[in-house]
Write a protein that binds this DNA or RNA. Structure first.
Lengths: 141, 141
DNA sequence: TGTACGGGTTAAAGTAACTTTAAGGGCAAG
DNA sequence: CTTGCCCTTAAAGTTACTTTAACCCGTACA
């Protein structure tokens, strides 16, 4: 596999940035990535700047930003005239959301653990109908 | 609103169990709920046992079980012959998944916070291109 | 009596963010 | 020369619903 940084195949770009080739085509279709250059056989060829852009997008997605938010962030990160304070604010918002999600999940973990606990202490050999956990889960608010 | 527990409308069931009416119809379509009884005007009518079943499903979903897992759990919870150990195991698995998700999110929170931090200390008034955070995010692995 | 309102009904399309499938072309190695 | 891997496209599938369009029904009010 020849990986001259100046004309990577989609497969190479995919491996380099750790996304799938269909996802790259999908990103192109929704214009998150620009239309790729093509070689004589009409195959997409990519360069180092594509690696950078896709890596940036991948990071955004890893950070939990939506496609549309990632699109904004790409635009902001390429802007020479606008500051990055908007991006900073977006990131700060994400931090808040993530904190909320973490507490939510912790509460959920606790509930589930007590469900398991109850199941273990009250109905190890019982039937579903007798299971205390199930009984409680069928009770409306 | 007459809410004789013996013939609730879909709207009443929805409110009681805190799910939307379209969702109830959807659950019926995918056979997570049985075909509802109809009144003379062909409208769905529900009873207390429907409230129990839907509440149970709602709980499963709140616990983060997929529709298919919830379907299993409903079947298990209604079984008179099979124990609930399988459900207990499913719940225990969820706990593990949730723990992993929590650590993941915490790590993410940390990264994002340092991103915000960097942005604040190095480029409050800079352009996107100069922003240290952006620069780093474009660097492949 | 008429009509406006707040329910209910259906099927179908939209959503996010891809993944999977089908059906095919190109090219290098064995 | 054929096997195998990579590439191409468009379209359908996925999850768990939500939204929309177009309609029916019973009742409360003027």
């Amino acid at each position: 596999m020849h990986l001259s940084t100046n004309s990577m195949t989609i497969g190479t770009l995919a491996k380099t940035c750790d996304v799938s080739a269909p996802t790259i085509r999908y990103y192109e279709k929704i214009a998150l990535l620009p239309l790729a250059n093509r070689n004589a056989s009409d195959q997409r060829r990519y360069t180092a700047s594509d690696v950078e852009r896709l890596t940036f997008i991948r990071r955004c997605r890893d950070f939990g930003f939506s496609i549309e938010q990632s699109r904004d962030l790409v635009a902001l990160s390429n802007s020479t005239t606008r500051g990055c304070s908007h991006s900073r604010d977006l990131a700060a918002e994400r931090v808040t959301e993530i904190r909320a999600k973490v507490s939510e999940l912790k509460a959920l973990e606790k509930s589930l653990k007590s469900l398991v606990q109850k199941c273990e202490t009250t109905c190890i050999d019982g039937t579903g109908n007798d299971c205390a956990s199930f009984r409680d889960m069928r009770m409306p608010a």
